[in-house]
Design a protein around this nucleic acid. Structure first.
Lengths: 338, 338
DNA sequence: TCAGCGCAAGACATCGTTCTCAAGCTCGTA
DNA sequence: TACGAGCTTGAGAACGATGTCTTGCGCTGA
């Protein structure tokens, strides 16, 4: 069974077709200045002729880079799936890298098996850099990356800032975001606040709540804090349950815009008007925020920009830059629901 | 600024440390039979001593493989994120590959930028195989993969089965699943059925609905078909709206187990008993199905097995196997909600 | 004693690029 | 005419592993 596998054309074939040496062909294709326009043109024509694309394996060995950046996801994918914010963050990364020749790939490492395989490929230097989307303290993989000196960017603050000297960090200040939202409530004169947040073990949720509390104090009692999922329906369900309790409240702080959308639906169904009776503030500045009636006042976490930043830092570190830490700032987006 | 970068140990260093040639060192580490136990031991000790791990780039060039398999996601990540089934499928893939030395990476290719970058890396042969999670007809990337003869596995049926001769295909029969669920309703004697499905443009949703209809006909009127998200809260909200309509129904077919869980909560709150008054059937056999009260009768799509299958086929194709098509079968899981 | 065998290990080529170095060519100037 | 400067180009080494061929060695048996 002889496969008719037409093996990919190599640089040598291009060189032969153009009547030059491999070195010259390489230079011509890489736009080296030390080459005449004439041969450059000829080589390129030949390359196009035979459909030449430089082989990643040969190239990687020669230049010492694979041009692949791993986006490491250590939490179970399903959790990542349920958190809508990630996709925009990831878009930010790919957007930024699309300008370069680097390719981001998502590397799942939640099971032990997966972590071992990942570790192995880190050791083999299969990737030029790693962006850890959800780093946690004491992660074995981080330990490995540190030892191997693989350029690494952590997205999110690590408690006690370990590794600050070896890894770069990018995060946006969730507590600040919480303060912004709470402050808006306070300035509006709202005194009895309810919070419908995401999952309780989510670190962003914890930080935002701290921000709420710093501003509102007793105006946000423990009993009024509800943890749920991130979606529309979750907000709807949670608000239903709050209404069933028949407590008095005049403001709802939401963990996501989708939650807020569900909350508003439930409030309207109960005959309550937003913002006349109740003020609602979301989080994320998801596109649903503008489609809500009334349009949603929300806190914008610069996810896409965070992605850009992480990608850029990774590229810089590949070029040898020192690790840095950058904090992105939240922003209150004023609309009509307050 | 001289970086104190302790460059990774190479095979030559191991060889030197063990007092043998590079070839011998290579053989010792790769468990070649043509090597004495004594030197094998010595070389391995030396390798451990200097923390040697074979460099992926050199190895890839020599063996002609990168040992990386791309899991291609052509739809926007956010869609993938909102569909809980993917994570189990992906787990299936990684599980299977964890036995081999291959590493799966997720490759997002929804924007044009991303597709171009992906295309480039396909051409450069950065990956040994590709598993396309959501293939669609006329995809430019599939065209590229076909031309390059990159081993490719499609997960999901392509209309008209193009590329059947070059690509392998794995899919599970959603229409069959729909029939199983509907048949169970019918045998239970339910006549007025409501369907709470996932997003309307999801192909699996379309196929399942076709299966429902094939069995139920007029017992599932158009007006009783509701499209929503995949989550708990979505089912809850949808069922609330159905109850508000005050139509008569005695069975609910759900697009996912999480939807079903929300549906059951809403029914109970409305004073309806499952399964005495209303029968509910889910989809996916998610772990939530057993935690429901009553435990959920559901349709199991062998997602994990599909992942195993896709990974195995990919490995086989890398070794030169011909493309194949395999259909996975659905299964009705009988519990107490019917 | 020496041909012949089997085994372990070394020498060298190979994979497909890039990069360094040196050589060839043209041209202008002394 | 000759020589150095400035281009362009080719030969060959590198990158770090694997695979093939060959050699060296000890042993057996005629």
């Amino acid at each position: 069974m002889t496969q008719p596998v037409r093996t990919a054309p190599t640089l040598a074939e291009v060189a032969a077709a153009a009547g030059v040496s491999r070195s010259t062909a390489s230079r011509a294709l890489n736009d080296s200045p030390r080459i005449s326009e004439e041969t450059k043109r000829r080589v390129r024509a030949a390359a196009k002729e035979v459909n030449f694309v430089p082989n990643a394996r040969g190239r990687a060995l020669a230049v010492g880079r694979t041009e692949i950046i791993a986006v490491l996801v250590t939490e179970p994918l399903s959790e990542l799936f349920s958190d809508p914010t990630y996709s925009e963050f990831l878009s930010g990364i790919t957007e930024e890298l699309s300008e370069s020749s680097y390719l981001p790939v998502i590397l799942q490492a939640s099971s032990t098996h997966e972590r071992n395989r990942a570790r192995e490929h880190f050791e083999r230097r299969s990737f030029d850099a790693v962006i850890d989307v959800s780093p946690y303290k004491g992660s074995e993989l981080l330990e490995v990356l540190r030892e191997l000196r693989v350029p690494t960017v952590l997205c999110g603050q690590l408690e006690g800032h370990p590794y600050r000297d070896v890894f770069s960090t990018v995060y946006s200040d969730d507590e600040e975001g919480g303060r912004f939202a709470a402050l808006a409530m306070k300035e509006r004169g709202r005194k009895d606040i309810v919070a419908v947040l995401g999952p309780q073990d989510n670190p962003a949720v914890v930080d935002r709540l701290r921000g709420y509390r710093a501003v509102l104090g007793e105006d946000l009692p423990d009993a009024n804090v509800i943890y749920t999922g991130w979606n529309n329906g979750d907000g709807y369900q949670a608000m239903h349950q709050i209404l069933a309790r028949e407590i008095a409240f005049d403001g709802v702080l939401c963990g996501s815009d989708r939650i807020a959308a569900g909350v508003i639906t439930a409030l309207n169904e109960a005959g309550l008007s937003v913002p006349a009776d109740i003020s609602v503030v979301g989080f994320d500045d998801h596109e649903i925020a503008t489609r809500c009636v009334p349009a949603l006042t929300t806190v914008r976490q610069p996810l896409r920009e965070e992605g850009h930043m992480a990608a850029n830092i990774a590229l810089d570190m590949i070029k040898g830059a020192e690790p840095t830490t950058s904090v992105m700032h939240m922003q209150l987006i004023q609309r009509d629901s307050l």
